[in-house]
Computed example of a mutant assay.
Amino acid sequence: MGTIKLKNIRTYSYHGCLIEEGKIGSDYKVDLEVKTNLKPSAETDDLHDTVDYVLLNKIVVTEMAVRSHLLEHVAKRIIDRVLKESKTVTKVKVAVSKINPPIGGDVEMVTIEMKESR
């Protein structure tokens, strides 16, 4: 078993419950971690024997571009697509952070984290 991590994927997206958030948008960061068997690719040196992190990044960027009211909803869509499109992944953990959230205080970011296993 092994782990592939994509850290600090940055997007500009339009998530949130406020109408203004859908119009103005905000900066986000996403951390993605997947568990998979890395032994085959370590032996063969072949991309087909591992989880392509280019695909993982594409999934995150694509799902972050779809407006949602809640970060939990975005995270769930990312998890579902990773499990659907990468059959060898056994566990997915994703953290979605909204940077400088409009919550009436001096808060650097708010983060939700979700994980799911097969």
Rank of each mutant, 00 (worst) to 15 (best):
P40E: 04
K35S: 12
R81H: 14
L70F: 12
D31A: 04
E72F: 11
I9Q: 11
I99H: 09
K115R: 12
N100I: 09
S97R: 14
E113P: 00
A65T: 01
V107K: 01
D27I: 00
S26A: 15
I103L: 12
G104K: 08
I59K: 09
T3D: 09
V34L: 09
V60K: 08
I4C: 02
E21W: 07
I78W: 00
H73Y: 11
G105C: 07
R10P: 01
K58G: 09
V92S: 03
P101Y: 06
V60Q: 07
L47Q: 03
D49Y: 07
E63Q: 15
K98L: 07
P102N: 07
E113Q: 14
K91V: 01
M1I: 01
N57V: 01
V110L: 14
D31T: 08
I99F: 10
Y28A: 04
V92R: 01
K84T: 11
K39E: 15
D27Y: 10
K76C: 10
S117L: 05
L56C: 09
S117M: 13
H15Q: 08
H15A: 07
Y12G: 07
T11K: 05
K115S: 15
A65V: 02
E85A: 10
L38P: 00
I4Y: 07
I99E: 11
T50S: 12
A75G: 05
K93D: 05
E33S: 15
M109W: 12
Y12I: 12
V92L: 00
R67Y: 01
H15E: 02
K39M: 05
L71P: 01
Y28P: 00
V61P: 02
S97V: 09
K93S: 15
L6T: 02
V66N: 14
C17Q: 02
V51S: 03
S86L: 06
V94D: 05
L6C: 06
A42H: 00
A95W: 06
M1Q: 06
K115M: 14
G25R: 06
D52K: 03
E72S: 08
T62H: 13
M1V: 09
E43S: 06
A95G: 14
D46G: 04
V51W: 02
I79M: 05
I112F: 08
D80A: 14
M64G: 10
L83Y: 01
D106P: 00
E33H: 07
T90I: 12
N57D: 14
V94K: 02
E63G: 09
K23Q: 14
P102Y: 06
V66W: 08
K39Y: 07
L83T: 02
T44R: 03
V110P: 03
G16F: 05
T111P: 05
I59Y: 08
L55M: 14
I4S: 03
I24N: 07
D31V: 04
N8T: 04
D49V: 08
I99R: 05
V61L: 13
S68F: 11
D31Q: 06
R10Y: 10
Y12W: 13
L6S: 06
L18R: 13
A42Q: 03
V92P: 02
I99A: 11
E108L: 10
T111G: 02
S41C: 11
V51E: 03
I4M: 05
V34W: 08
K23H: 12
V61H: 05
L47K: 03
T36Q: 05
T3I: 15
V94W: 08
S86Q: 15
I103D: 04
I79F: 04
N8R: 13
